[in-house]
Nucleic acid binder design. Sequence first.
DNA 1: GTGAAAGCGCTAACAT
DNA 2: ATGTTAGCGCTTTCAC
Lengths: 338, 338
Amino acid sequence: MAITIKDVAKAANVSIATVSLVMHNHRRISKDTKVKVMEVIEKLNYRPSRSARGLVSRRTGNVGFILTNDHFLRTEPFYTHIFIGTEIEARDHDFYILLNTIDSHFTEKDQLPRFILDKNVDGVIVAGKVSNILIDKLSSLSLPVVYIDYVPSNKNSSTVLVDNIMGGKIATNHLIKLGHRNIGFIGGDIEHPSISDRYKGYRQAIEAEGLPMGSNLIETLEDYPARTNGYNAAKRLFSINPDITAVFACNDAMALGVINYLKDRGLRIPQDISVIGFDDVVSESTVDPPLCTVKVPTVEMGMEAMKLISSHLKNFNGYPQKVMVPVELVVRQSTRKL
Amino acid sequence: MAITIKDVAKAANVSIATVSLVMHNHRRISKDTKVKVMEVIEKLNYRPSRSARGLVSRRTGNVGFILTNDHFLRTEPFYTHIFIGTEIEARDHDFYILLNTIDSHFTEKDQLPRFILDKNVDGVIVAGKVSNILIDKLSSLSLPVVYIDYVPSNKNSSTVLVDNIMGGKIATNHLIKLGHRNIGFIGGDIEHPSISDRYKGYRQAIEAEGLPMGSNLIETLEDYPARTNGYNAAKRLFSINPDITAVFACNDAMALGVINYLKDRGLRIPQDISVIGFDDVVSESTVDPPLCTVKVPTVEMGMEAMKLISSHLKNFNGYPQKVMVPVELVVRQSTRKL
DNA sequence: GTGAAAGCGCTAACAT
DNA sequence: ATGTTAGCGCTTTCAC
């Protein structure tokens, strides 16, 4: 039988109400009793029952984490690292994270995640792009929601976003500083806000330098960014403009595809062409040469989201907040000075 | 205010006890009332409160998932896929999975996962190799524990294991069938049961065929298997025995290292050397040529573990069970007929 | 076969 | 500043 609040009360010679007040460090408790009770709690190693607490306080102490299954099953650890970030931060806030993957094409007919139907979460974190139908359903729920790495159609939610514009600039400026003047951009679904922002940063850097930017330098496909797409995009890009000396791929997966294509054409990286990616999700030794990229602090993003949820939950802070996390250039051997 | 058991009872014109009995499909309930109550539950969309249930039944409805943080943060999705498998299966058993990563070098001083200290789980799933100290602590806890992909020092626990011996045989036989007679094995930490079993399978296949197996064909390093290890191991292997025509690497990460080494030496794969890996965690288009490997059904392993925990929890089935999951050859272009 | 009622461990309103 | 107490929603004896 586990230690209950009664055991603590008895051992400390106070009422259970006092113990409860101490646990929530209520102001109207004398220093002395507080210390005394705390000592007993410590000694008995008392942990309050989450069920009992939940029953009376109508809080579960759980936070739901929603992710599309293709995002979770991706070989790149981007979203799983965000997930682990929420878990790490949750420890400090005494929450537990419940994961639920959903179909990427969530429709009107699909059920909401089980933890919502079960009323088993106090708030929800959504990572990555999800369907507007889901977003609408969530926002009609009066549950705090924090979006990570995606700007929901419903604008007044809290978000944790990557500074993609800055990242696009940083990547492009790196190439410019290395002396490149003919820089290709390879994007995925340009409708995706992250991709379009990275492209925006690229444009800004190019224009700031007064470099030429014919439309032949941009190649975007509608499909989901993936290596094969990167391969095909590179093929098209170089057929349009063979004079390119450096490529900025909108993410590492595409960059790998670009590298594969260039290698197949017998070109060397970085001697013939410099390549830079985005995300830093590729293990350094997987690809030869190691990929120069822009690092996204995935674990920290998860932590930030958890902090936001927690502040919404604890302070009844209803104002949506926006957190923008910085990115960082990671120089590796896939780029070189011209 | 959410629907409670009282609302259902009132609407169905029965007592709350009856509703509860129906929910647990108790035998002593007449068909008629059962149908009637079920209809009301359906109509009102009633979901019992997990807190209330937990309070009285002393069950949380949660299962803990323990993983070392380096396993979770690995770029290969092996353990994250196992994790998602437990989550998928948990839906059918009405459990929630709580994740907790721990340090790989869990010592006497380290705290047990928070969900255990909080008594917030009914059972625990442990994936991958963990320290004996943790295993001992867990087994002294009177919580059902299921181990995935690792044989705990404490032998009488339930386990979900990969048929590594069979996998080693399958991989080696594939190479033998292609005409290879001089086949190298590259292993990681041979102390690790998975690795040693794969090696065992390799030996069995080689010996069954009456092929020579000088000790020069085996190269095991003590370090954790990783690409750099694979690279260095290949270097040593080929310096000892330059006549090898095919390499069986104990996992995909090592295989990538082997491929990198061979490419650096100017050898072509599979024309000059065939390479086969194990695990199938490398995206097909990441490596050139696509890696032939032995697929481990990771998601299914997670599902099996959840089934075991659930059966232990629901049937008070105390007998430890062992589930062995089969592996499967995945033929891709990194091997060829001699 | 069904209902009444006790009680799980806790919080919070109200008493003192 | 601390104690008393009602009651959160459910399961589970025990009556009937």
